[in-house]
Design a protein around this nucleic acid. Structure first.
Lengths: 208, 208
DNA sequence: CCGTAATCTTGACGCTGTAAAAATTGTCGC
DNA sequence: GCGACAATTTTTACAGCGTCAAGATTACGG
């Protein structure tokens, strides 16, 4: 009874697997992606340095799992923003983009992890699934605008590439501190800027 | 006379500083950004593991220098592409974007280093200078299109943000392997796609 | 209630980056 | 020419890292 049992999964710790993922995020945010250490995450979770080995093959597997959780939250943030937006189809796609950037700026280290090749090997099946789910939010947004046979030709796919590139590029550059020349402008509100950017990428003459 | 003197700077090695930067790039390309090691770079340069300390304060300083060289080459690639393009002002900006992406895809690890926060501390003055030089290629491109008072309001800066975000985002996503859904399309030529993307970002109604 | 399997800890290995001390080599004044 | 000095490089050492192997601990099924 020393350790109050919160779930029924665990054997010793409670739920070490989940605790390690949470600890890994704290470690990632606290020390940055290069100073991240598996031993540090174990320390934060209150277990010995070799304990993670039983739940994750190696350090990269733990970070893959964290990245997977990140993609799930990215998807949630985009849908959340869409729910708060108007029903207009373009507004829906713009809202997804705004959510994308908001998530990125709120979780810079996580985004670096999710999209960098660094520190991961990316063969986690859940990671692939969650990344696909996030992707399909964008695809659906373009599909709504373009209608029926949106993706028969390559025009629809180009729209997706344009929208994704725009929001992702802005997010990355803002995280890297390279966007101060525009975010620092006096009367620029971040959200207006992002909406402007997304609108440039999406198909103006789409339903032509 | 055992070591043929190529310049007048060096004392012992010849030009260890430059050799270390070259070795660091080989190490970066060969082992990836997370497996990069200072000792490995020293090994490639044929010196002891502590030799770099006299030329670079620490490992991050060496990678900062490499990133600075990367920005110089990025600028060169953009200008090269501009020289090969038509004189039309929009074509010039598009060419800069194409050069940006070409450099990125030819040097993926280097781009990750240049724009990631990972493994660097970024207080190298030459790094800042070279990054600014690359930035100004884009700014000049927008300035040419918008003319005289391009950057009095914020519209011009938004154009810069849009163009940069677009090319940077596409480059990052392509490097991460996330753009196969469009690069894999049968008759899509990469260059056409990139030109299309850049054209979406730039100010259509600019000289209005 | 005990055996077995899952979980966690301990200890060890080679690797890393960095600092300090020792050794080597070029340069400058004489 | 050569000795003193300064710059460069190597050697040595240390703490931290990821991972593996072995031992200890705990839960579960018969």
């Amino acid at each position: 009874m020393a350790t109050a049992r919160k779930a029924d999964k665990p054997y010793h710790h409670g739920d070490l697997r989940a605790a390690l993922i949470a600890a890994a995020e704290a470690e990632l945010i606290g020390k940055g992606i290069d100073a991240f250490s598996l031993r540090g995450a174990a320390r934060r979770a209150g277990v010995s340095h070799a304990a993670p080995a039983h739940h994750f093959k190696d350090a990269m597997a733990l970070l893959d799992a964290l990245a997977a959780a990140g993609f799930a939250r990215l998807t949630a943030t985009m849908k959340e923003e869409q729910a708060a937006a108007g029903a207009d189809r373009k507004a829906q796609l713009v809202a997804a983009g705004v959510g994308y950037v908001r998530f990125a700026l709120d979780n810079p280290e996580l985004l670096q992890l999710m999209f960098g090749t660094s520190r991961r090997k990316s063969d986690d099946p859940e990671l692939g699934r969650n990344a696909d789910a996030a992707f399909s939010v964008l695809v659906n947004g373009v599909g709504m605008i373009r209608g029926r046979d949106a993706f028969t030709g390559e025009a629809g796919w180009r729209d997706v590439a344009a929208c994704w590139s725009m929001v992702h590029g802005y997010a990355q550059l803002a995280i890297a501190g390279k966007m101060e020349f525009v975010t620092g402008l006096e009367f620029t509100r971040q959200r207006d800027l992002i909406e402007d950017l997304v609108r440039r990428a999406l198909p103006e003459k789409a339903p032509l």
